[in-house]
């Protein structure tokens, strides 16, 4: 196991970082108030030493006005933190955006957060508490819909961690090379990151006492209303994950299914994959013995339901 001795989080600064793309400023402000409350409580409890809030904006025009930034800065500073807002000037995507934010920060741990997620007062403390020396990334429980993937009772060990709200050490982040922004644009980057963290010998943990309200809604019949972007990028990442984790038969099967599906986003995903294949842009396959990657039907973990 390649686990280096980590520093004490109580002595560290954590960076809470979100990638924006045209989000409603008042939503960001409310999320900022909640995370500032949670982070300042973690400082008071001695869980962390300092914190900073880093926002990277992928939208063509700045998502936040000067007055928005001033308001958010005021509430962050009032809670003992600092704010760094960067307008990237290009749509880098989630993976590259988080890599950029992480590279620009010297914090000892990175709390990856969706910009519309609202933390509970104890979220930061509980995530930090679960990030033991052998843990590479720890994921919060999302409300009102928790992810259905299985996790071990008591230990919280799980196949992969969603980065809607998750904490990882900088040392681990750097060790595995951050998110794979070359391969994943919007979805699948967290699955890939988790699996590479596990390949490096660290555990991936779900911490149910760390809460994160993620405003997801269901249809009247309790169905999942997937957006078009979610449909397309999920299909694209399904192919990429199968390829990257040495599941060539799965790739062939998915390509065949997608190409003959007569569903436009699936056909586009298949074409995009083939184009990258022809151009030599696909990543080098890893995990040939399938020691960490889990493909269970359409999922990347055994699901509880």
């Amino acid at each position: 196991m390649d686990v280096s001795e980590p520093g004490r989080l109580a002595d560290m600064r954590i960076a809470i970082q979100s990638v924006l793309y045209g989000n409603a400023p008042d939503h960001i402000e409310r999320a900022a108030e909640a995370l500032a409350n949670s982070a300042s409580r973690a400082v008071s409890a001695g869980s962390i030493a300092e914190w900073e809030y880093r926002l990277g904006d992928c939208a063509p025009d700045p998502t936040l006005s000067d007055s928005d930034i001033a308001r958010i800065t005021a509430l962050v500073v009032a809670s003992g933190g600092s704010l760094e807002y960067t307008h990237f000037g290009a749509n880098l995507g989630s993976a590259a955006g988080h890599n950029r934010l992480a590279n620009d920060s010297g914090a000892g741990a990175l709390l990856i957060l969706n910009p519309d997620v609202r933390m509970d007062p104890d979220t930061v403390q509980n995530l930090v508490g679960a990030l033991g020396a052998d843990v590479g990334i720890v994921e919060a429980r999302q409300l009102p819909l928790d992810h259905p993937k299985e996790y071990e009772r008591y230990t919280g060990d799980t196949s992969w961690a969603s980065t809607a709200c998750a904490l990882t050490r900088r040392s681990v982040f750097e060790h595995v090379g951050g998110f794979d922004a070359e391969t994943f644009f919007l979805y699948g980057d967290d699955v890939d990151y988790s699996w590479r963290v596990r390949l490096a010998g660290y555990r991936v943990v779900f911490e149910p006492s760390a809460r994160a309200f993620h405003d997801k809604r269901l249809t009247l019949s309790a169905g999942w209303p997937a957006s078009k972007a979610e449909q397309y990028y999920s299909a694209e990442s399904a192919l990429m994950l199968a390829h990257k984790y040495s599941m060539s038969q799965r790739v062939d099967r998915l390509l065949d299914e997608f190409s003959t599906s007569r569903v436009s986003y699936l056909e586009r995903a298949a074409k995009s994959f083939r184009d990258k294949q022809l151009s030599g842009l696909l990543p080098e396959p890893i995990d040939p013995n399938h020691s960490v990657a889990q493909f269970v039907g359409d999922f990347y973990a055994v699901h509880r339901f």
């Binding site: 679960a130 928790d146 230990t155 943990v205 149910p208 006492s209 009247l220 509880r304 339901f305």
Partner: peptide, 22 residues
Amino acid sequence: EMWPRDQSGFRHMNWPNAEYPA
């Protein structure tokens, strides 16, 4: 169920079920 660090917790056992009339 017990959560890590001896916390008294719980887990969901099914996806939300739209059992009540719309």
